[in-house]
Amino acid sequence: MSKLVQAFFFKSCLFQNHGVSFCKLLVRYIASSSRYSHNRSCSSAPDLNAKNSVLLDYLVGSLKFSMNKALSVSSSYSRTKSLEKPQEVVCFFKGLGLSDAHVQSIARTVPSILFADVEKTLKPKVTLFQELGLSTLISRNPFALTFSLERTLRPSISLIKKMLVSDVRYRSKEQVNGDLLRVLTRCSTIFYMTRRLEANIIYLESCGIVGSQLSSLLLSRTRLFTMPVEKLEELVSRAVEMNLDTGSRMLAHAIGVLGCSSMKTLNGKYEVLRLFEFSKDEIESMFVKWPYMFGLSEANLRCKIEFFLNDIKIEKALLVQQPNLLSFSIKERVIPRYQVLEILKSRRLVSKDLRLITPMSPSNRKFYDRYIMPFTNDAEDLLLAYNSKFLDTS
């Protein structure tokens, strides 16, 4: 900066005889520099329409790109003067039975696919997906077509499928392939994280999460398997700090909840429970029995606790013993079934000691068959109470 000022001072001396001051000269120079910078930036910006108008028109007209997206892509492929390769790719996808809308969506999602080699790059990957019954992956997660076949796709798919097949529950080939598709659709990054995926599987198995629990966790919380193993260890440590033992069948559920919640979010829900005077031990006891309690929003958690403690006035100890009562919809399930239960108890048709969770758990059909159908003399009153969920229950 000092050199620039010195230069201006020198020039000002040259123009002193002409009555031009240093300050005026500086202002004029800054103005001219700004105009030069602006003109330079404008001239350096690519004239995208002029550079590749053929590709631009094709992207907008045939593949329904937005103008901004088309400009960006045509700029990246400004040297591509022929539409031969994009048209070959589009023709290939249509030959697979994909609709125009699907092909357009694939192109807009991953524009680089339009410039891939059909024979060497796309066909081998599509063949693999077809062999595994994953043909719909092409349209559901077209990013899969951007990964290396041998280095990435085969190893990752093989590992995930092996884990799903190891599930002890009986599942047909179609069910396994359906679950495989769900995993590969939910998380694109899982394709190139084979080593991390393998490390996380080994660690979770060491914590007692195996078989159906492991595959269920993969299906419901796929992104847990792509995080660094150290982060996964932190989640397990947090669950253990809340009195959940490794080896517990609830550990997988706890990790799933903790993995998608920040500490700020968890603390907010913890404070909601403290507002209702639940002790630390009671909160941890509820978490151990039903971790999904911390998966509810603060507003939902508060609303449900208020209903049970203040509206129907159950003992707080009952909610500590059966926290999964909080899993049910108050309007659609708890209120109508509670009213049926109260009628049955008042008429001594069921035991007064019947646990509240018992009539809440069955499906609607089973609840009807068990708590309404057998009591023909009281069926009208029971049905009226049960259908009151459609009425104002305030």
Rank of each mutant, 00 (worst) to 15 (best):
N39I: 02
K24P: 00
A31N: 12
H18M: 13
S37Q: 06
S34E: 13
G19N: 03
R35T: 07
A45M: 15
R35C: 05
Q16E: 08
N17T: 07
S34C: 07
S43V: 11
S41N: 14
K24S: 04
H18P: 00
A45C: 13
I30H: 10
F15T: 07
F22W: 05
S44Q: 15
L25M: 11
L26R: 10
S37E: 03
Y29P: 00
V27E: 14
C13P: 00
C42A: 06
S44A: 15
V20W: 01
Y36L: 09
C23S: 05
F15V: 03
Y29R: 14
N39H: 05
S41C: 10
R40E: 04
L26H: 04
A31Y: 13
A45Q: 15
C42V: 07
R28V: 00
I30A: 10
L14I: 08
L25G: 10
Q16P: 00
Y29Q: 13
I30Q: 14
L26V: 12
S43C: 13
R40H: 04
N17K: 08
V20D: 01
R28L: 05
L26E: 09
S41P: 00
S32D: 15
L14V: 08
S44C: 14
S41A: 15
R28I: 00
S34K: 14
S33E: 13
S21G: 01
L25Q: 12
C23K: 06
S34F: 10
Q16M: 05
L25W: 02
A45G: 02
F22E: 06
H38Q: 07
A45D: 09
R35E: 12
Y36G: 03
S44R: 15
L14Y: 05
I30E: 14
C23F: 05
H38G: 01
Y36R: 12
S41E: 13
I30W: 09
C42W: 04
C13Q: 12
S33F: 13
R35S: 08
Y36M: 06
L14D: 04
S34Y: 12
N17P: 03
S21Y: 02
Y29G: 00
L25R: 09
S43A: 15
S32W: 14
L14Q: 07
C23R: 04
F22C: 04
Y29D: 12
A45N: 14
S32Y: 14
G19Y: 04
H18V: 12
R40T: 08
I30L: 13
I30M: 12
N39A: 06
R28Y: 01
S43M: 11
G19K: 02
H18I: 11
V27R: 13
F15E: 05
Q16D: 07
V20S: 01
F15L: 10
H38P: 00
Y36T: 06
A45I: 15
F22S: 05
I30C: 07
Y29I: 00
Y36P: 02
F22G: 03
Y29L: 06
S44P: 00
H38L: 06
V20Q: 02
S32C: 08
S43W: 13
L25P: 00
S32A: 12
N17R: 09
L26C: 11
R40Q: 06
L25V: 01
F15S: 07
N17F: 07
S33P: 01
V20E: 02
C23P: 00
N39D: 09
S37I: 06
A31H: 13
F22V: 05
C42R: 11
N17A: 09
G19H: 03
C13N: 10
L14T: 05
Y36A: 09
